[in-house]
Design a binder for these strands. Structure first.
Lengths: 204, 204
DNA sequence: TGACAATGTTACCGATCGGTACGTATACCT
DNA sequence: AGGTATACGTACCGATCGGTAACATTGTCA
């Protein structure tokens, strides 16, 4: 007899192929951490809303800090997915890539309950150097800076590093302003301002 | 007899004219809240480092949240002092005012242990609408936006609101990047990028 | 000198924090 | 069927959270 090694359609929902506790925990943590902040959420609330118990959490994650770091590593993956979507949509045209990315960022910032960038927020919540969450956040931002500078170079900007950094400032400003001002805030103009800055930097 | 109503030089230090507990508490809270974050600091540590006890804190401040709000109100005052210093240094020249302000911001962001803007950080730490700390922070940012847009108008920018918002994005980006990257980070270029953006917005 | 108000101190509260020891059930492979 | 490893739940830990009741001390007036 050939045993089914993947999914058995006869199983009742939520019984077999049980959504691994670790995945449910990470999913709930991801949502709560992003929306309400990492420090604001206790592990009890996470396990309660995940429908599991605390030892289940601590068998999959060494500590709350590491759970937060896992959340950010997942966030990092999804971030670069979004970023590369914009890049891939305009091959060889970094200016259009930036514009496409920022148009989407600007739109997201106008949604209610927008809470900014999970990476940026985590770095604000954990200023101590070496904190697991901050380490992930810093690495993400370093890489973002590197890529923005590279794109500015590819655009042929006179001072590419300055332009790359300027774009980073606008992006971070959009993340923060988005959650500070809500809809109608300054973040909606991030794409236009970035394009103006690029324009000015190329003519130099 | 004329009684001395202010300071009596015969008093021993730290005995009479005792530095009002409320002031010492606020001073310590201000330092700790800014450097390590509001949520990260407990009231016990504040009173311990202020050399007082907890009831002293709660007689002067209704709650920790209100103490945080008081810290931010003081921060607000000092912020506008710095802002107006740059403004007053260049009467009638908003572009030079912005530049002067941002040069100073850029320098501050390069200092070790720079922790960004207390207002911005507080808003990240407390996303819940109506939180006392967040209320102060939002009011400060609204006013900053208003003034930046007014200055952009005074510069004669074609789309003054967009320029004002662009400057706000750069500023917020500098606050965040300053604490994310430390010295050598993108925030050091905030003044130059702002000036480039202004240049581009005026020629439009 | 004595009353009053303000300020400081000791000791404590229930709730929640992150984290764990230990017993129980379940799935899988032989 | 039986053995075994894995996953899960009950109950609990000390520490710390924000906040308070009741008492002692002080300075300032009449």
């Amino acid at each position: 007899m050939s045993r089914m090694k993947s999914i058995d359609p006869s199983i009742k929902p939520g019984e077999a192929t049980p959504p691994r506790a670790a995945e449910r925990i990470l999913g709930v943590a991801r949502d709560l951490f992003y929306r309400r902040g990492i420090r604001a959420i206790g592990v009890d609330e996470i396990v309660r809303r995940a429908g599991v118990t605390k030892p289940s959490l601590y068998r999959s994650f060494p500590s709350k800090d590491e759970l937060a770091a896992s959340y950010l590593r997942q966030y990092d993956l999804e971030f670069w997915e979004r970023f590369d979507e914009a890049v891939d949509a305009h091959p060889g045209d970094p200016r259009a890539q930036i514009k496409a990315f920022l148009i989407r960022v600007g739109k997201r910032t106008q949604k209610t309950d927008y809470r900014g960038c999970g990476m940026t927020n985590a770095a604000v919540e954990y200023p101590e150097r070496g904190h697991p969450a901050r380490v992930v956040s810093e690495a993400n931002k370093q890489e973002l800076r590197r890529r923005l500078r590279a794109m500015a170079t590819a655009m042929g900007a006179g001072d590419a590093d300055t332009l790359g950094d300027g774009l980073l400032l606008l992006i971070e400003g959009a993340y923060i302003s988005g959650q500070l001002f809500g809809a109608g805030g300054p973040a909606q103009s991030v794409a236009r301002n970035a394009d103006l800055l690029i324009e000015a930097s190329l003519k130099k």
